[in-house]
Design a protein around this nucleic acid. Sequence first.
RNA 1: GCGGGCGUGAUGGAAUGGUAGACAUAUCAGACUUAAAAUCUGAAGGGGAUUUCCCCGUGUGGGUUCGAGUCCCACCGCCCGCACCA
Length: 860
Amino acid sequence: MSRYDPSAIEPKWQAAWEDQQTFRAVRSEDKPKYYVLEMFPYPSGRIHIGHVRNYTMGDVIARYKLATGHNVLHPMGFDAFGMPAENAAMASGGHPKDWTYSNIDTMVSQMKPLGFGLDWSRMFATCDPEYYGQQQALFLDFLEAGLVYRKNAVVNWDPVDMTVLANEQVIDGKGWRSGAEVERRELTQWFFKISDMSEELLDALDGLDDWPAKVKLMQANWIGKSRGLQFAFSTIDAPEGHDRIEVYTTRPDTLMGASFVGISPDHPLARHLEQDNPDLAAFNADCRKGGTTEEALEKAEKRGFDTGLRVRHPFDTAWELPVYVANFILMDYGTGAIFGCPAHDPRDLEFARKYDLPVVSTFASSEDEGHTLPEDGGPAYVPPKTETVIYVRGFAGETEQTGAAAIDAAIDFCEQNGVGHGVTKFRLRDWGLSRQRYWGCPIPVVHCDACGVVPEKKENLPIALPYDEDGTAIDFSVPGNPLDRHPTWRDCACPTCGQPATRETDTMDTFVDSSWYFARFTAPRADTPTNLDDAAYWMNVDQYIGGIEHAILHLLYSRFFARAMHVTGHLPEKCKEPFNALFTQGMVTHAIYQTKGADGRPVYHYPEDVDLRDGKGFLKDGTEVQIIPSAKMSKSKNNVVDPVAIIQQYGADTARWFVLSDSPPERDVEWTASGAEAAAKHLGRVYRIAAEVAGAEEAPTAEDDALLREMHKAIHDVTGGIESFGFNASIAKLYGFTNTLAKSKAGSDAKRQAAKALAQLMSPMTPHLAEEIWALLGGEGLVAKAPWPVAEEAMLVEDTITLPVQVNGKRRDEISVPKDMDKAEVEKLALATDGVTRALDGASPRKVIVVPGRIVNVVA
RNA sequence: GCGGGCGUGAUGGAAUGGUAGACAUAUCAGACUUAAAAUCUGAAGGGGAUUUCCCCGUGUGGGUUCGAGUCCCACCGCCCGCACCA
């Protein structure tokens, strides 16, 4: 008998799929369509075991849907623009384009041996001019539709390298290469008007039934709808034009607890006052240093500067409040000014204590639990708005009411008394897409002295990136954007007046590239961004799979893009929510093996250099290593597993089986050598069993029925596992069913039937092995195309069931009863058991709960 | 700092509010073998009693329930995101 040899069978079946175009997506009306998509990879260089897991999950779905009679679209491409290509060119010469395409070639050649059922004919990279040219066309249509505009926005500026830095390149407020303290600089940039769709993007989350609740919640919080009061404090002796300070608050019910007014360092009043106040100017300048991330701002120590200016409280003109400039107030949320209520906001409380400002509670807990009030040194009191509290300094509504009711009452009161008006605000900001970098999609506009900012003509698209300058390769070792200093690329004719003009040198955020690729896959060679017929047929993506790290930005931007593409006629109405179902998968992790070097720093060791014995690890020289389990794979920690090596050692099916087997798909899975070994052994066993069954000639036996019942259970459970993304549970069932088959004394016909079902059930996970044993067992055609087996209901039900019997929730015995025995009968049997008699110890039961088919609980 | 999630044997994990630990790894024992590998069979949460039993046990502390790993509250730890990383 031949042995299981993946290196022989895997290429054979891959060639068969290729020959028969098994996974080519073809439109036809006779079958339902199914579009499954995994988030496409960045071409970083080599594929990672995490990619293997991600694409294997999608492949299981794709192959399962093919077998259940769907036209399946399962494409692959590359998210190919971005900083790493420029960094590589900067670090080791070469050109981002060459680096990127060479990486793509490598990764494709590494992915093909994994046997994914992909339609490779649809592949593209976002750095292909054919793709980004269509993206430029989309941009022009969005511009015409009023979905894009220009405004000033701040960027991180490295004053030494004279270049804009990404947030990632700012480390502890300093530039990553120069080490210089980062400054903020204003530039005119392009923005997508995503905020116009805030309400719609929020409301539509409700309809996404097959998205994880946590992702919808994160998006809802990110969009951040709030209802509040906008009103003004009148200033006392303020500079001209600043007699009012507009503030926005979501807690107008706490107005009587106001203790100060805070304005952003970028507020017009702060900018005015700093002109003749050098101390304030220095304070503001200091606030404008450091990174621009929300995290950096929130974590920074709360600092303020007393302007000396005072304002009057809107309810009491005799009540004056100081005006501080404070570093934690953002100019681009609300009005750039707040009123501080320290009793009910932890941040305001920290600030008030630091600057010795009054703390006044406006409401208190309705439960008398002896809370320390904030004015007595306790924490800020911020109960959920749904909780009923007692207003000690209320001015509208009831004394005892929920925060939400108090807010509504406060807004009504203020509106009636001419103090401001209720407004709805969103946290979501417009999406700035300009990047001052080379390796991205050029923004197709022209700057003309006479005509201003002019869109490029569509017939001139794509506006392609220049490869050379003056016939020599662009020099990336110089910081800054090479497009800016390119000798000729900027020169062009104004599309409107024809006079000499210059191109925009900013390129687009790479999130733009990934916000519509799923639509492009439906017609990847169309000479318009999409083909409406193809989009109408293939869209939406029925199942989208990717990492939780994309829960907010990528998914929100894609949802915006789908709407914008509908508005501009590039997608049908039904595509406004482009992803019907979303699944967020976990990472593949690996232990880290480390020892301490002579300098006390950790030294990391490759897994192949470590021997594992009794749960401990040793180097070749006997030194014990410290094992850190389940760490994110990282090149610098030497704990990266290379899929190529795994395929060479065990074959693709083993890699695919293992990444699905050990953990639920949404959780991280730890790659272990022993786990991979075990997967390989199991597949070898399946092969042996199938080969044995294929050659057997035995008469039917009394055990045929039992085996076939197990087969139907396996069909039912494995199918259920695949449908619900419980791949690990499906695999556990397949282990169990394989054991049953191996031990079965059934006749050869029943065994062959069971083995063929096993081949089919395994085919989405281990497609090559499944094809091989399917052929061995005399299966017709490719198992990939064979109709998925269906479990017979009648074979799934047992006549007799075992019920556990509990006393006070603790299991004491069990009874075996016919499945439809009535409750009274079950109760009688349960009470008669030894375990119950013993546990009751003469006492009489107070109550007996019988859950049919489940459990019996005796309450003593 | 803010938003979201996770926490179960030595290990990865299973468990529509209903027998906690399926399945697998590692471990131990046995079969086959001159031996090893491979393969096959079996044991196994902790503690006590010793064949059939009892107690404890799902990060910690409370709560709801006939019944909680699962639901609620608080805390601890870890992970993801925070708008120019992809």
